[in-house]
Amino acid sequence: MKNNEIQQRLRQEAKTLLEQGQVEYIVGYETGSLKFTTTPLLTKNKDDTDRLIVNPFIVNNLSVYLTEIKGKVGIVAKGCDSRSVVSLIQDNKIAREDIVIMGIPCPGLIDLKKVELLLSKDRDELGNITRDEDRVVITIDGKGRDFPITEVLFDNCLECQIPTPQEYDILLGEPTTPISGNVSKRTNIKELEATPREERWNFWKEEFSRCIRCYACRNVCPACFCQRCFVEESEPQWILPTPKWQDNLIFQVIRNIHVAGRCTDCGECERVCPMNIPLRSLTRKMYEIVDELFQYKAGMDKNALPLLTAYEPTEAEDFIR
């Protein structure tokens, strides 16, 4: 099914959901105000459903709004998003019956930063970006240039094993298979693990001295749903709200430990960071640790206990004396 067929069907489904009163809100994507961007659309009004779109730029993880919206919600969810929804259900933040999941089998999304690096041109200087199967054609002032899709997809899309939503009420389009045989460019977990300890620490020290603590990584993440984050505690004040590299580093380390078993590697934290700190090199590592130690993948089964509340009689205790 091509994108616009999925889009038509999505609009139809969303409109009927609103008309029949099955849901009060529809959360989806609409065309953004800048070139090649999309923006979340939260609406109660059924006419707005005509603005819903599906294209290779629907990057936001919309489940972040579920903890905020009161009432029944119809949500458009890609593979990683639907797992975030399930993870929220596992944590009892939302009830499964309040959510209507319109699943979209995700073919992988185009990372505009990679496109800009590839062509050393900014997003708004590009003519058009069209994708067909495993090629992408980018036109710059008239001339079309053709690249393999794996050059421009997000790192997390390249490494994604579960592109089709597992938990859905409506599946828009046939299930897709993961993209095979690929090496992610920006997330350099292997290289970092290879470098000596001292260098790794200094690498993170360097990166986090740029952080300005805008908390976009925390606020965009559906797994970060605490009412009051430990960063905002003043008695005891574990870390300072000032962007010193030590406090930034501790903030990011503890945030990753808190979202362990909840993070579905949607890559949003790295995408929104205005200082371009490679946060996915942390979240992906935690994702792999959790998978390696406890064979646990976030948001796969809505009845499973969250990672850190469950335990097995014998597991992962080689480091304990």
Partner: peptide, 25 residues
């Protein structure tokens, strides 16, 4: 304001925003 996620990007990077907080270490 429906889609805003209340992060600090727009205010921190805005050249005319001047709000600040004072903390003691």
């Amino acid at each position: 304001s429906a889609k805003c996620i209340s992060c600090g990007i727009c205010t921190f990077l805005c050249p005319t925003c001047y709000c600040f907080d004072i903390n003691d270490e």
